[in-house]
Design a protein around this nucleic acid. Structure first.
Lengths: 195, 195
DNA sequence: GAAAAGTTTCAGTATGTTCTGAAAGAGATG
DNA sequence: CATCTCTTTCAGAACATACTGAAACTTTTC
């Protein structure tokens, strides 16, 4: 082992950096700004409460950007404000339970995107229904199928984020059971089985 | 002009336009280009097989754009090529079963995003493990929690897209059933249809 | 094998998003 | 109430992504 100026911290920092990068990429693919995801990654993975300046320094971003990202994360409910006695700065801390984080994300995205879409789809469908034309009937059928899908998905989502969320967590763990041992054989075998 | 003027077609076209718009917006929020989503919306909701020129005209987009979007949709496996006898053009048709569409989407996104992320997370975790430092242990713990979450999610996803997928569809319907009984029942009732 | 019909590629341009830095705002402190 | 510390806002700059149109390519037809 070679001597180091900061024993331990190099490896740790490297891990943190790599996680931040991975998480940032993930975010940008899923419609969350890269920086916002990176700020969350930093707070989550270190578990520490940090102030704006800490975050600015660590991620090398501007004050404005840091401020906006933090605000957005607060809106999503996946980080919280924290204070230190005798310090006027605001500190921020990430929710530490991964399942809570994802419940919050699902809740927000459903509220912001799926629900309005569903309203929209209903409007369109109701409107096309009024049209007596035969040619419109097939369109109607497809809209129905789509609405039905999203209503089922919404139902599932509500289960996930609702009071019995933790229960669903268990269900998910059980349902996804055989993923580690095997994918092909197990899936095929359990096809015709009832529980 | 068209051989016959259809009084109902205005309403139908309006419905189609509205659906395309809604679906396009949805796509752009979820990291799919707006146009790609619009092309899919058009093909799905009309149910017709269309050629590149039809699509260009309907959505007022360039040939290049149409070509790229169609190619991407083919890659995702949610539209298919089709041909008409005595016509050299290629036609494209959307998968009509909504559940198949979403299975395809889940399959692709898992393959492209979750799987590489998981590999990445494992690498990072294994690397931080080697570090014996106490300060790194907490980081390790959090990485583990995250990995665990994504492995469960992946397991669930595989169930959804796998051979027993349709079974999971039923499970989803049942699971989401009694949560919002009023809303769900209403939608389901008005949709009863023979095949 | 040349013309016709159709499809893909790609450099340049348009459009949209995110980031910065300075300035204004908000709240504590002496 | 003037000042100091920290936070938020916002116009414009930097960056990223999507789109166009024309040229290159491929396949079919005669």
């Amino acid at each position: 082992m070679a001597p180091r100026s900061k024993p331990g911290s190099t490896m740790r920092d490297e891990g943190i950096d790599r996680f931040i990068e991975a998480w940032g990429r993930m975010g940008s693919v899923w419609g969350i700004s890269r920086t916002m995801a990176e700020v969350h990654a930093l707070l989550y993975v270190t578990g520490e409460a940090m102030c704006t300046d800490d975050i600015m320094a660590r991620l090398e971003i501007s004050r404005g950007n840091a401020s906006m990202s933090l605000r957005a994360l607060l809106d999503w409910g996946i980080i919280a404000r924290a204070h230190r006695r005798g310090d006027r700065k605001e500190y921020f801390q990430a929710e530490q339970d991964v399942w809570s984080v994802f419940r919050a994300i699902v809740r927000e995205r459903m509220k912001r995107e799926i629900d309005p879409l569903l309203v929209n789809l209903h409007e369109i469908r109701d409107h096309t229904r009024e049209d007596g034309e035969k040619a419109t009937a097939d369109l109607d059928k497809r809209l129905d199928a789509m609405i039905d899908f999203f209503e089922t998905a919404t139902g599932l989502g509500n289960r996930f984020i609702g009071p019995s969320g933790p229960g669903l967590r268990l269900a998910a763990t059980l349902l996804s059971g055989p993923h580690k041992a095997d994918k092909a054989a197990k899936g095929r075998r359990s096809r015709e089985r009832t529980r």
